[in-house]
Design a protein around this nucleic acid. Sequence first.
DNA 1: ATGAAAGCGCTAACAT
DNA 2: ATGTTAGCGCTTTCAT
Lengths: 337, 337
Amino acid sequence: MVSIKDIAKQAGMSPSTVSRVINGKKHVNSAKRAEILRLIEKTGYVPNKAARSMVLKRSYTVGIVIPDTFNIFQRELFSIIERNLESFGYYTLFFFAKFEDQSEEACLSRLKAEKPDGVIMLHEMKNPAFYEYLSLAGIPVVTATFNYPGILSIHVNEEQAALEAVNHLLSLGHRNIMMISGDGFTFGRQRAEGFFQALMAAGLSWNENRVVFVRHYTAEFGMYGMRELLLRAGRDFTALFAATDELAIGAIRTLKDEGFRVPEDVSVVGFDDIDIANYITPRLTTVRQPIKEIGERTALAMHRCISGGDGFNPGPGKEQILPHRLIIRESTAAMAR
Amino acid sequence: MVSIKDIAKQAGMSPSTVSRVINGKKHVNSAKRAEILRLIEKTGYVPNKAARSMVLKRSYTVGIVIPDTFNIFQRELFSIIERNLESFGYYTLFFFAKFEDQSEEACLSRLKAEKPDGVIMLHEMKNPAFYEYLSLAGIPVVTATFNYPGILSIHVNEEQAALEAVNHLLSLGHRNIMMISGDGFTFGRQRAEGFFQALMAAGLSWNENRVVFVRHYTAEFGMYGMRELLLRAGRDFTALFAATDELAIGAIRTLKDEGFRVPEDVSVVGFDDIDIANYITPRLTTVRQPIKEIGERTALAMHRCISGGDGFNPGPGKEQILPHRLIIRESTAAMAR
DNA sequence: ATGAAAGCGCTAACAT
DNA sequence: ATGTTAGCGCTTTCAT
């Protein structure tokens, strides 16, 4: 393997000079620089990352904490983040995490061992120790799709988005509206929050039974949630807000199996606008999250925090709130009268 | 940061001894071993990967080549592979690749620079130079969902699986069957191959127009494919085989938009059995790939190739063919007579 | 069984 | 502007 010494030898110069060229430092004769560059090109020399990493104390690695059970939206987002991280040349270290103390512990200790240059979180840790360690260790963190106090967070205004989704249902004349949301993520609560706000603003009574919280944001759990709601409300509702498109898909499945038509009998609105939302039957009315932008910004923010050179310092509590958009399709209709 | 020297000092021994303990070598007094272990535990010491990597000339990194445009199935598979790679403690390096010479070149040169310990391929490279380099460099490769001569490959029997899917349609009385497949991946051709074989075996005439090849295996392209087929065949067909569930979902969308009922007018069978196939309307009849097993085996094979210690050497041409299964649901029905 | 010493490839003072 | 030197944290001969 060709090393920096080989290049130095061939060029008749010292490794330091070569190093300077590689790292684009000033103070090197431009003729020599050119010669070294030529040699590098010719030999196909590539600096050894491990060696560099050792002396620089940087790993060129970003850790990414992902929910162990993740849905289509999260997977899409994840792949967008990866694509952007790739373009900056980072290695990636995965941390699959569940909402269990033990799993969080395991993550934390692995994190301590691996010492990535930065951490992107797609999964919310309950234990503050996690964030505290990162902060103490000076490892930058970016959270995507949720907000954590004092940490650079990139997400939409969940409550507002949910409120708009429900307002759409209200504007269609629906009054008896139910919701399926989920545990674990803050956005589950926030979307429920928006749901209630919209209802209250419309002068409807607050009733906790309108919302069911399921364990995961997947179609399977959408079915469970819908069944529970059916148990609670019988046929006495005309619209449903699902905290996730997949939840909506599962709910619609159950609704149809039980003989309801969507949207004729029940209007359904989802959240996320995943790829297939526009292809299934009925095409799903949903709130679109700007997934591409969330992913890009997350990776970019991470990169900036790590490389830091340009004085990028988001500071505590900096959030980037990106715009959502209600996409009206076929799963919602004016209330039959 | 606590280093091997610190441990050695505290234990009153030399770094060599500590190193031996860490690496589980023989020839170390068991009392001393215990003491060192205790110290490691107590101090939370973790060996520095970069340093180890440098002397061992191993990067603990596996590269994973992914299609730039990847569908739900591929994403699911990918995340399963990641989860398993994580359990072996690897870093991951992403290579997003398109079916373009330029993109392949870029991948190759980045690969040369990064020198991962192994490469997993979810995307097929056209250029043999890619595989040649890897082979020459002694970097183990595992391909998942497709086969490359001389390389350890993990996949289902695509042709046979497709043939069974089409046989299901034939057994339902369908004779005028169309297919949507895709470019790029070998499995696209193989599934089409199985399609034609089934048709021939049933004594039907071979007609190239029965199959349309689209650019990606997504719902969007399923719509395009279906439109093209409609142009070619008018209403003159009663069944469709889609090379992918997403293709099927897109095709069904177009079918419904054009006034066809599924399965009453047209039966549709997909391929993959992605998560939501069982929740959409109609529930999709499809060929299930054992995605979990494919992912697990891929990661395991990679790990074994890299660590090698146990004499794992798949040898040229070794393939692991995993069992598929036809899942009959609601998108197929006996031909209306 | 254990320690001393060399060296992996690189960067960063420190000289010059 | 350039070279010399030391050292990052680890493993591995090679002695003992």
